[in-house]
Structures are given as structure tokens and as C-alpha cells.
Nucleic acid binder design. Structure first.
Lengths: 122, 122
DNA sequence: CAGATACTCAACTATTCGGTTGACTATCCT
DNA sequence: AGGATAGTCAACCGAATAGTTGAGTATCTG
């Protein structure tokens, strides 16, 4: 099983909520990249790209190895795994498999105001 | 895997990058909820919660049915599925299973998964 | 050494975000 | 009709984003 440290998902999802940063992750999926290489495809200053990289780094999505004057960035998939796992909870809602228990829970809690069982909506 | 509506992932991930909104999704996973019910657990004004709900709605994560004076919100898992699928591309990086095919992909460069459109290099 | 290269950092700007409050609309209930 | 209930909307505020430019710090190279 994937036993990742439960990363704080807020900075992770926040980092993912930007096309530039997702593009950078896509590049890093191919292999390690320097800051300059990561920045190259984007029409913005190096400083701006550097900020994006820092956002990814603080979210734990990349690791940086300073080698001489070059900063080599590598993908750290841990937080991605956490995010993926968080989303997996909702998987049953888009797969057809809403089994009886799920259906019961959903309709029970949603429809009838005075839930008879333990179902206290909070 | 079937056809997925190509949701714009930026608003989706952005919506997920907030604990309040993730909490609301958690409540909606149990069943449909009115705006007031969604807002109740959080210590903020109803208007603030209403804004969060609107963010979720614009990201396509919830649907709203106005019934009388109550707005009933339901989970729409489509964008969650898209986000999950996007993350799945990186699954091989945390499963530790970098087999020959992966290696080929990585060194052959070329294609990023379902996100970056901003060119690539190397 | 001088100069190019690879970055970061600080300051500044404009926009967005998350929250507030007050006013308003619409619906439900006597 | 009148009042409580459910929720939105607009204006406002402070903090965070996303970008810029200019300067500074190492590091490599000739």
C-alpha cells in the first residue's frame, strides 16, 4: 500500500490550481529539470517562474538539488499520492457502483429531515 | 477509459485548495444539503459560505436545485473524476514501479498527460 | 581577472480571495 | 397582511497571488 505521510492538502491543491505549475509538473514527469529549463516554455520572467517553482516546492511536490549554479528540480510524488487518495474517496460517486449502502446513506441524509437513526447531520 | 468531460482543472483544483470547501464536499458526499446546512458547521457568515458554494458550483463540483426558498446542493463528481484521472498519470511515480514502459516514456520525452499545452523541450 | 550564466531576493503593482456587514428578494407560515 | 426563514447581492476591507523590474550572489568559462 501507499503509506504516504498525510500532507496538508491545501497547499497541494492550491499548487495544482494553476496551469503553469501543472505544466511544470508535466515537464518534471519526463525527468529532472533545472529552474531555467522549467521556466523556458512559459512566457514570463525567470523570477515569476521561480516563484511558481517555490510554490511547488513548499507544497512538497518537488525537491531541489543545488548543483553549482544550477538548481535541479525533481518530482516528489508523495503529495500527489495524498491528493489522489483524497479524491479516491469520491470515486464511488462517478463509477456506477453506488451500492445499497451508499444509496441508503445518501438518500437518508438528504431527504428526510428528522433522521431516525444515528444520522445526525452536522 | 470511457469519455470524460474535459473539465478545466484550474477552477477544480482551486476549489479543492480550501478546507472549508473540501469540508462541504465531504458533507455532500453523505447526501444533498441546503446552503444553510452546508454553512452551519463553519464559523463564518452565511454570505461567506454562500461564496464558497458558488466557487464549488462554478468549478462544476456541485449542482443546485432551487426548491422554494431552499437551495438544495448535490455533489457532481465529474470534475473530481477528471482531477483524479489527471493525478493518475503520476501514479507510477509513487507506486515505485518504474518499469520499462515508464522509462521509455520518460526518456522518449514527448507527451505530458492531460494538462500542459505549453510546449516541451529536451 | 572579466564577463557570462543561473538563480534568488526585494520592492512595487494589480488582481483575486476570504471574510465582513447591510440591504434586498423570495418563500413559507400564521 | 405580517413576520420569520433562506439565501443572494453589493460594497468594502485586509491579506495573499501573480506578475514585473532591478539589483545582488554565486558559479562557470575564457
Amino acid at each position: 500500500m501507499v503509506e504516504q505521510q498525510t500532507a496538508d492538502l491545501t497547499p497541494v491543491f492550491h499548487a495544482l490550481g494553476d496551469t503553469t505549475r501543472r505544466g511544470m509538473l508535466g515537464a518534471l514527469a519526463v525527468g529532472a529539470r533545472t529552474v531555467g529549463q522549467l521556466a523556458a516554455p512559459f512566457e514570463m520572467s525567470l523570477a515569476a517562474a521561480s516563484k511558481h517553482i517555490k510554490v511547488l516546492e513548499k507544497a512538497g511536490l518537488i525537491r531541489r538539488e543545488v548543483r553549482g549554479r544550477s538548481h535541479i528540480c525533481r518530482l516528489d510524488p508523495g503529495p500527489l499520492a495524498s491528493a489522489h487518495e483524497w479524491l479516491s474517496f469520491y470515486e464511488r460517486f462517478w463509477t456506477g457502483r453506488l451500492d445499497a449502502l451508499d444509496r441508503l446513506l445518501r438518500e437518508e441524509a438528504g431527504k428526510h429531515p428528522p433522521a431516525p437513526q444515528t444520522g445526525d447531520e452536522t
